[in-house]
Design a protein around this nucleic acid. Structure first.
Lengths: 229, 229
DNA sequence: TGCCTTAGTGTCAATTATACACCGATAGCG
DNA sequence: CGCTATCGGTGTATAATTGACACTAAGGCA
């Protein structure tokens, strides 16, 4: 059975995969490591779980400490525990996934991370530990979720055009979508509100700006529904 | 950063939710606890992760030790880490999900579990720790998977009738399905092989026995496909 | 004012989902 | 041995959804 003294134990950390969309690209928040191992390499923000701390709280705290980004919600992604994933010894990490609008969070790197910055997932620097693998799992999960949850909105600014939303879907799903079918489908959800405003200053027809209907979304969440892109 | 000496750490366990179907019910494999806390209560088979052991291996080992059931594949379910989930101190557990055909595994309870047995999920004894919650999460995951993966077969005997398969779906999804539509859909997958045999000795028309086409399934797995019930 | 660029719109065909009711085969019983 | 009870097995029509596909509209700028 479970005795607190049962032999050596793995250490436990949390790591956060925070995605955002900017310039029609998918980006991820990384910190530059200041200490060994992997000094100077990039890593997912994360760190040790404290003795009396909920896992989700640990993820939020570490993300905040390492990057200055405060998030109220993250989804648990997967727990990675290969014995050799950390050269210092056995470390099991619970990875978390979050989607944010880049730009609304000021990045304030913590003392033990030299920098926190957005990196396009299509062009990543070498990552510490097994973080490249964690990121792959996160991208796969994001793809899966995007197909049946309208989470695309979480990644975009408060107001956005349908074309911007479509580009995001295309980037994440890695395939092109038909404009008319995409619009039909996404508008059919009734989750978008026409703000009545248009984006001006562009050298072409001014596109309509929409925002996400959080109330309707919460309502549908409660009753359980699907969404397909 | 991560120093092995960083303060007190949560202990780490694995717990296994093993589902099977029998008598048109969904069952789960539980062990009776021999030691405190929760002496005499039922629990999911599980235990501590060893220092140099992969998480999946730990789950397989604990399941085998506690119940005698050897499985080659389990899917990671979720990691539970509420600070108070174990009265003895901080214990984080990585839960795993497996589907088996009950009857093909001999149950051999380990020394520290008084008994390993199948229990219908619709009528469970009180469970130790937060295992009732873990089981809820597992049932939800099973429902989700059943909708788009043909995993129902994993829970049934080697040969089965379409009605048995449908009952299983109905039990897991908690709704009734149309017989003709179900048959059409499930046969359209071409994942069932008509064995040419029928179940006899029943006081009604003898139903055709099918078995699951593992080769075709593996093939489709590779190319990626969906399945809807 | 003409041109370049992106926004925005509709239809048709194919596919898929759903609703729905009767005859067939077998064992058991009287 | 035939009657009955019980579950097995089948098809069709309608509605909803998907996917393919091309042109006009509007705005800024040269």
């Amino acid at each position: 059975m479970r005795h607190a003294a049962d032999g050596p134990r793995p250490a436990l950390t949390v790591d956060c995969v925070v995605f955002g969309a900017a310039d029609e690209r998918l980006e991820v928040l990384l910190v530059e490591r200041g200490d060994a191992p992997f000094t100077g390499a990039y890593a997912l923000p994360g760190g040790f779980v404290r003795e009396d701390e909920d896992l989700a709280s640990a993820a939020r705290r570490e993300l905040s400490e390492k990057t200055g980004v405060d998030l109220s919600y993250m989804e648990q992604l997967y727990t990675f525990g290969a014995p050799a994933r950390d050269p210092r010894g056995r470390v099991v990490t619970v990875a978390w996934l979050a989607l944010v609008r880049p730009g609304v969070h000021r990045l304030e790197p913590g003392t033990d991370a030299q920098g926190a910055a957005w990196h396009p997932v299509a062009d990543l620097p070498p990552l510490a530990f097994d973080h490249a693998h964690i990121l792959d799992v996160a991208r796969e999960r994001l793809r899966g979720k995007l197909r049946y949850k309208p989470i695309g909105f979480e990644l975009l600014p408060e107001v956005f055009t349908l074309t911007e939303l479509q580009r995001l879907y295309e980037v994440v799903l890695e395939r092109s979508l038909d404009k008319r079918n995409f619009r039909r489908k996404v508008l059919a959800t009734k989750l978008l509100i026409d703000t009545g405003r248009r984006r001006t200053g562009v050298a072409h027809r001014a596109p309509t700006l929409y925002r996400f209907d959080r109330e309707r979304h919460a309502e549908l969440e409660r009753s359980g529904y699907l969404f397909e892109a």
